[in-house]
């Protein structure tokens, strides 16, 4: 049954992707991408990757799509006709695709439990991590502890993105924005619904943040969801209003703080005589130490991701306001 669902979803993905090639209406292209992202999240659920599905849905279908739409608002929504030759791209893609198909022929069969990746390295994660790290969610254990250095790197990637976006689009102060141009202040239904939703979204974000050890979720997803609550607020009540709740400069501080919080756990464990990011040294009992470490670094990830996503939205949003004022 799972295979059948997989096949149907893959076919839908193929149709979506093919449609993107030929469409000239970029608004539709971006919407199709959102659909593509959601469909792949479904595939991830079907293939047991619930954490990945959660992230893909909130990031790919959520943040990425929103950013693309904002960009379209600034750059125009139709692709112009052009006479580019499609011969070379087709050739490149055919050769690359053929190489990959050739590579699949020796691949271990799909879903076979005897495949090398299920025999080497991963068994320890599956069998030992509930004891060694003490969390039921193995993805969180591997992400935050065994491969904690990757996750530190990932947090820094997010931080770098904020640096890039701020360097390119700039930070705007509250005074620069015209208050009356912003938001949907005359839409009463929207305002009331938003007021009801925002606390719930934030509550959900906190749940995802702290429940990530036991179920799907964690700092990254929580940060994105919390940012979504503020983005909703900014959309309905206007950017200036949002700026007065959390300012852009303050967000930069938060983004830095999250990275530093993560890294300081690593430094502290060095100070305690362990290797960098060795959480076992944080407490007398190694498993308890692992748990403390993971809670703190997940918090660091959550803070940075929240601050960066919101900063990026502010930067793009300010650009739209600026073009409206013109």
């Amino acid at each position: 049954m799972a295979e059948f669902i997989d096949l149907v979803l893959l076919a839908m993905l193929a149709l979506t992707a093919l449609r993107v090639i030929f469409l000239k209406d970029l608004f539709a292209v971006v919407m199709l991408f959102g659909i593509y992202s959601f469909l792949s999240a479904l595939i991830f659920v079907n293939l047991d990757a619930v954490d990945v599905a959660f992230t893909e849905a909130s990031v790919g279908a959520g943040i990425s799509t929103v950013l693309m739409l904002v960009t379209l608002a600034l750059t125009g929504r139709t692709e112009k006709e052009n006479k580019r030759s499609t011969v070379l791209p087709l050739l490149v893609v055919t050769v690359t695709g053929a190489a990959l198909i050739y590579g699949t022929l020796d691949m271990p069969p799909f879903g076979d439990p005897n495949n090398p990746i299920h025999q080497h390295v991963a068994p320890r994660y599956i069998e030992e991590s509930p004891k060694e790290v003490g969390l039921p969610n193995m993805v969180t254990s591997v992400l935050a502890s065994y491969r904690g250095f990757d996750t530190l790197g990932e947090t820094v990637v997010v931080f770098s993105a904020a640096i890039g976006v701020i360097a390119l689009l700039g930070v705007r102060r509250r005074e620069d924005l015209a208050a009356e141009e912003s938001g949907f202040l005359t839409h009463h239904v929207l305002r009331v619904v938003a007021k009801m939703l925002i606390p719930l979204i934030i509550l959900f974000a906190l749940y995802v943040q702290f429940h990530g050890d036991f179920g799907p979720g964690g700092g990254f997803q929580a940060g994105v969801i919390a940012a979504a609550a503020f983005i909703l607020y900014a959309l309905v009540f206007g950017l200036p209003q949002a700026f007065s709740v959390v300012g852009a400069k303050f967000l930069q501080l938060m983004a830095s703080f999250g990275v530093l919080l993560y890294a300081s756990v690593g430094l502290y464990s060095m100070f305690k005589g362990g290797q960098f990011l060795d959480y076992s040294k944080l407490a007398a009992d190694p498993v308890a130490g692992q748990h403390y470490g993971i809670i703190i670094i997940e918090l660091g990830v959550g803070i940075t991701v929240f601050a960066v996503m919101l900063s990026i939205f502010y930067a793009f949003g300010s650009q739209v306001e600026r073009s409206n004022v013109k």
């Binding site: 501080l253 983004a255 990275v259 890294a263 690593g266 430094l267 960098f276």
Partner: peptide
């Protein structure tokens, strides 16, 4: 004993501090 990790984490930690 931490010599090998220092060249990475020194600039990595310094970057957010430089921003602050």
């Amino acid at each position: 004993q931490h010599l090998a990790v220092l060249p990475i984490i020194l600039p990595l930690i310094a970057a957010p501090i430089a921003l602050i």
